[in-house]
Design a protein around this nucleic acid. Sequence first.
DNA 1: AAAGACACCTGTCCGC
DNA 2: TGCGGACAGGTGTCTT
Length: 270
Amino acid sequence: MPELPEVETTLRGIEPTLNGRTVREIRVRNASLRWPVTDEIQQACGQAVKGLRRRAKYLLIELETGGLMIHLGMSGSLRVCDADDMPHKHDHLDIVLDNNRCVRFNDPRRFGLVIWWEYPANEHPLLRELGPEPLLDEFSGDYLWRKSRGRRVAVKGFIMNARVVVGVGNIYASEALFMSGIHPGRQAGRISASRYLALTAAIRDVLERAIRQGGTTLRDFAQTDGNPGYFAQELLVYDREGLPCFQCQAPIRRKVIGQRSSYYCVRCQK
DNA sequence: AAAGACACCTGTCCGC
DNA sequence: TGCGGACAGGTGTCTT
């Protein structure tokens, strides 16, 4: 479910609740997430919130001697509520604050993750090998072009590889490739520098616009107040199999590339 | 080193 | 109405 814009939306949603507060309690209802939630997580109790940031699709709640790292997987979401509100199905974990407010982790498929980490976060095994953030200057057309030389993998898989660039998931990969006129199955190493420049700009543009709309809700993504994200209405190709291309009217195709559904226009993307 | 397959898990939708 | 199968926004790990 959540790609970079949905994680960024979630971060902005929980920020006012966490700022200036102290963690009073961590309530674990179901510890079997992608990585088991261990007792280590209880070290968060009594610690003040020092900051909040996002790296790739990971949310980092920075406390005094370490912090909480949260990943939403395919179906995870965070909601802000009161600590004594009745939990719903799949509400696996609560971060209860000193004012009785609560950040509640829900994840039907349990591909998500909530773990304790100690400083420095950037050296954590899950973060150490990650590529650049797509919205920062370190991500450029030149970088993508250099990185892709000799690579035979399909360009869609290439830009979804977190060692290449983080945060680009299945929806926004299809969208950015359409916007830059590149066929998703084209070999990464056989694309010119100028086309990578266009692709880089498209990735930035689509991610920034999606953040402004609170992310994309296709099925079950929710912002922290329970509202959906509104970017679905701006999607150009994703989930539009058989529907006319907005540029040329040809039917949008769906094809599995690298085990993921890819949506594209055969006439507009080469 | 790179690329591909697979596993993890639940819910929903569609055709029969 | 029930049942089986396909599919879903991610990514670590294992095999080629």
